[in-house]
C-alpha cells in the first residue's frame, strides 16, 4: 500500500513542473507561437532561482527573481519571433543554446566549476492540516510543496481564462487567424508578445521549482528535456489546460515509475529506466498528432501587409 501511495504522490510531485511550464506554453501555443525555447527559459529560471535564494536567503524571493529574469529572457524570444518575425523553431533552438551557455558561464563565475553547491533556502513540504491526515488520500494529494498546490489550482483558472474571457478569446484567435484579428482591431503582435512573456513567467517558476523544490542546487543542463516534455504535454493534452493536466500526470507517472523501478533494483539497466519518460513522450506524440487542435496559424509569423 505504501508503495502505491508513494507512487501516486511522486507522480503528482513530478507532474507539477511539467504542468506549470505547460500551462504557460498552452497560451503561447494557442497564440500561434511554437515555444521550443521553453527548455532554455526553465534553465534560466532554475539558475536565477538558486542565485536569488542564495543572495536573499529566501526561496520565495528566489522564485520572484527567477520569474523576473526568465521574463526578461523570454522577451528576447518574443522580440525575435514577434517583432523581427524570425523562424520560431530556429530562434527557440538558439534560445536553448543561449540559456545553456549563459547558465554555465554565470554558474561557474559565481560558484566555481567544481566546488560543492552553495547552501540555499528551498521549498519545503507543506502538509495541509486536516486533509493530509486522511488515510491514502492525504499523503497522495495534501502533502506537497506549495508550488504543487498552486500549479493544480491554476488549471481550472487557466481553463476559465482561455475559454470564457475576452483575453482568452483574443489569444485563441490570434493563433488561428491573425489577419482576421487584425481586421477587428486586435493587436496581434502585442497579444503574441504578452503570451510569450506569460509562458516565461510560468517557465521561470517551473525552473526554479526544479532547482529549489525537487532539489536544492543548480547543475549544468539540469532541466534535461523537461521543457520539451512540457511542450509535448501541450500537444498530448490537445492544447487545453485540462488536457495538459492529464498529459502532465501521464508524464509524471512515467517518471514516478522510473524511480519505483530503480528503487526495486531490478535487472533492467538504469539507463533504460531513465529513457522511459522520453520514450513515453514520443509515443504520446505519435498517438495524438493526427487529430489535434493545433492552431492553424501555429509557427507562422504574422506579417501585416
Amino acid at each position: 500500500m505504501n508503495e502505491v501511495v508513494s507512487f501516486f504522490s511522486t507522480t503528482i510531485r513530478l507532474a507539477a513542473p511539467t504542468l506549470l511550464a505547460a500551462l504557460g506554453i498552452v497560451f503561447s501555443e494557442r497564440a500561434g507561437i511554437v515555444n521550443i525555447g521553453t527548455e532554455g527559459m526553465m534553465l534560466v529560471g532554475a539558475l536565477a532561482g538558486v542565485i536569488g535564494s542564495y543572495v536573499t536567503g529566501s526561496a520565495w524571493l528566489g522564485m520572484l527573481i527567477a520569474v523576473f529574469v526568465t521574463v526578461l529572457f523570454s522577451a528576447i524570444f518574443a522580440y525575435f519571433t514577434v517583432v523581427v518575425k524570425a523562424d520560431q523553431t530556429v530562434i527557440g533552438t538558439g534560445m536553448n543554446l543561449l540559456a545553456s551557455g549563459l547558465t554555465i558561464t554565470v554558474n561557474r563565475a559565481l560558484f566555481g566549476a567544481s566546488t560543492s553547491p552553495p547552501e540555499i533556502d528551498s521549498f519545503g513540504i507543506v502538509a495541509i492540516p486536516g486533509l493530509s491526515s486522511i488515510p491514502i488520500i492525504g499523503p497522495i494529494f495534501f502533502n506537497h510543496h506549495i508550488i504543487v498546490y498552486l500549479t493544480f489550482i491554476l488549471v481550472p483558472i487557466a481553463q476559465f481564462v482561455m475559454f470564457r474571457t475576452n483575453i482568452g478569446l483574443k489569444v485563441r484567435s490570434v493563433g488561428e487567424n491573425p489577419k482576421a484579428c487584425d481586421t477587428v482591431g486586435i493587436r496581434v503582435g502585442l497579444t503574441r508578445f504578452l503570451s510569450i512573456l506569460y509562458s516565461g513567467v510560468l517557465a521561470g517558476m517551473a525552473g526554479s521549482f526544479i532547482s529549489m523544490g525537487m532539489v536544492s542546487f543548480f547543475t549544468e543542463g539540469m532541466i534535461a528535456g523537461g521543457g520539451f516534455i512540457a511542450l509535448a504535454a501541450v500537444v498530448f493534452g490537445n492544447y487545453t489546460p485540462r488536457g495538459v493536466m492529464l498529459s502532465s500526470l501521464v508524464f509524471g507517472a512515467s517518471n514516478s515509475l522510473m524511480y519505483r523501478l530503480q528503487a526495486l533494483a531490478t535487472n533492467i539497466p538504469s539507463q533504460f529506466l531513465l529513457m522511459i519518460p522520453y520514450v513515453i513522450t514520443i509515443i504520446s506524440l505519435c498517438i495524438v498528432s493526427r487529430k489535434s487542435n493545433k492552431p492553424l496559424g501555429s509557427g507562422k509569423p504574422y506579417i501585416k501587409e
Binding site: N166, I167, L169, K170, S173, C181, V184, I186
Partner: peptide, 11 residues
C-alpha cells in the same frame, strides 16, 4: 464578439 470593444473581461 472577437475584438468588440464593448466586451467585458469575462465574456
Amino acid at each position: 464578439v472577437l475584438g468588440y470593444e464593448g466586451n467585458a473581461a469575462v465574456l
